[in-house]
Design a binder for these strands. Structure first.
Lengths: 193, 193, 193, 193
DNA sequence: ACGCTCGGGACCCCCCGTTCGT
DNA sequence: ACGAACGGGGGGTCCCGAGCGT
């Protein structure tokens, strides 16, 4: 019987990811995290001796890897570049709208708050974005795009999504995301011809 | 003789805008603002009785209006939709790169940190994004795009720029922005045909 | 009309001096100080922006100067070296015993806790001891001792007092102090002959 | 074959003694102790179930007994009261100066910090001082002093040493100790005549 | 009336001394 | 013997009124 050893650690990380998505780095206190995780704050110092930054770093990695996995499975399957892009954008839109425009991208918020002043976090964030770009690019190549076109489309898709998250959170309406999806699929189709 | 009454007010607003761009809402303290403004912190509550939020709101409005003005003048002049989009993206890129990837978009950071939990700020932010969209759309229509195409291209341009700011701040390299510019001008050209 | 400016500052300093005497540097918390001073802890940061060390430094200076004043007035008056030494030792003993062996020397406790690892505090403490030595030496010369003998007797008196405070606090009996007084007066008499 | 059971216990005690001498009771954390001892902190509560106070008590006893042993051997040998006093003072001075004015008397620091508020520690500390006094007194009697004179000289020697430790740690110069040695030997000589 | 020093609690992150389960 | 977990302060700083000084 495998004991899950310390699920507290994962609880803390999950709670941190959630709160980072909603209120960002400076807006998330360790007390909030402990409350959200349902664990005492004292344990936190033992599990993450380097403090808040270590915890945030772990949460960013976990979120980044989680999204990467989901993307990889959602983007798989038959289809054109247009379909790949549409599945990507729709996935992110669904998460945002489904949470009442509360749950955005934890990576983006932290990026705007601390990068590039905080070197370690910046590097981690950049690596996560790269990993997402790599997944997108791989799937776009799989459905027939050239390396150059795949890279460009992946990059624009990522930035458009991140930007749409910013704008849509403030608007609290799905309009902008819908327009972005429409425009991006159109662009993807034009690249496939 | 009209004394410029309280230029302190503008000093505070300018300092707030600067700091919001770099460290966001929660990362910016009133003390930091007073230091940056070179003014005593006590004056702050005389000039902005409602406190931090009133000051932030004023800074967001000022920033939003300032960008709107600059955009309107930069986007003016002859050219195609492609040229309009290119001028927009290049302008934002130049500001970011010129500051060493430190000065991003004050609106976006606050949007991710507090929206939609903070109603008043969210509404202000949404309005600012709308005003920018309106300027972009107007200039795109002026160079010949249909209302629908202009709206779509303006929206995608805005979101792509905001997303590129997020990603580029972490990467501290101009690559992503360059790719976004390339892809967006390509898309603009395809819409003009 | 002299405005009493901020007697809070003096309240904080007095409270700190008291607590340093009883529990030392590390044993005294800012919260304890605020409670003892009957003031909120927030004010402390305004009055002593540099934090605990600045407050402790001020308390050490105040204590040191206060003792210096009292010594100067108590040691004045006619008498021999023996009388001067006796008045000094008896004064300190009276304070210690009068407080139930609780109130010792705030300087000494801090000296043992942080010197010489904390340079600034060490320097301040050394200066205070020097000032006490100077007062003792001056009065001993006044009653006829040579410079050399005055210096030696002053130094031994100071160290004997400080040591007696250490031992007596643990013993909670006046015996040791009595013996020290007896021996020191004897020594002072032998120097006067 | 008798395994030395738990030399960890002695490691902990030695580490505690060292740190008490340098930073006192409140300035020494259990984590520091474990680090200094090179042992895991978890073991500490197995070996010292009553926690920090039990450990400190053990360290005080060990230090006290150790000093007692060293004193007894150093003070032995031919000589006058003057020689006995000189050997005692010089020994303590050598330890202090040799450590760069860092290693003082662990007993004294704890005495000033917690006595007389902490009854158990105070009693232990008083007993240790008594034991040192007894050793000093015994050797002074051995070289010819009367009981009364031996007691007085022993007491003054102890208090002068403890006080000199306090003052010298702050001054970080050997001057004061030298003067104390000179004066004390002079006094010892005067008692022997 | 206007400006700003002075002062006030709440709370943040860190880390403390301690116990529990293995 | 010890890795893991636990609440409770540690010092510091936050955003903000109350009242003196011009």
């Amino acid at each position: 019987v495998a004991r899950p050893k310390s699920d507290s650690k994962d609880l803390f990380i999950a709670a941190t990811s959630t709160l980072l998505r909603r209120k960002g780095y400076h807006g998330t206190s360790l007390k909030d995290i402990a409350t959200e995780a349902g664990a005492p704050i004292g344990s936190l110092y033992f599990l993450f001796p380097a403090g808040k930054d270590q915890l945030v770093l772990a949460a960013l990695h976990a979120s980044g890897h989680g999204v990467e996995q989901v993307l990889d499975s959602v983007l798989a399957g038959e289809g054109t570049a247009e379909a790949v892009v549409r599945r990507y954008l729709s996935l992110i839109e669904a998460v945002l709208v489904g949470s009442g425009y509360i749950d955005g991208c934890p990576i983006a918020t932290v990026a705007l708050e601390v990068a590039p002043l905080h070197a370690e976090l910046s590097a981690a964030i950049a690596a996560i974005f790269e990993s997402w770009l790599a997944v997108l690019e791989r799937h776009l190549r799989r459905v027939g795009l050239t390396k150059s076109k795949a890279r460009n489309l992946a990059t624009l898709s990522l930035t458009a999504v991140e930007g749409a998250l910013v704008v849509t959170r403030a608007q609290q309406r799905p309009d902008t995301f819908a327009v972005v999806i429409k425009a991006m699929t159109e662009f993807a189709r034009s690249l496939s011809e």
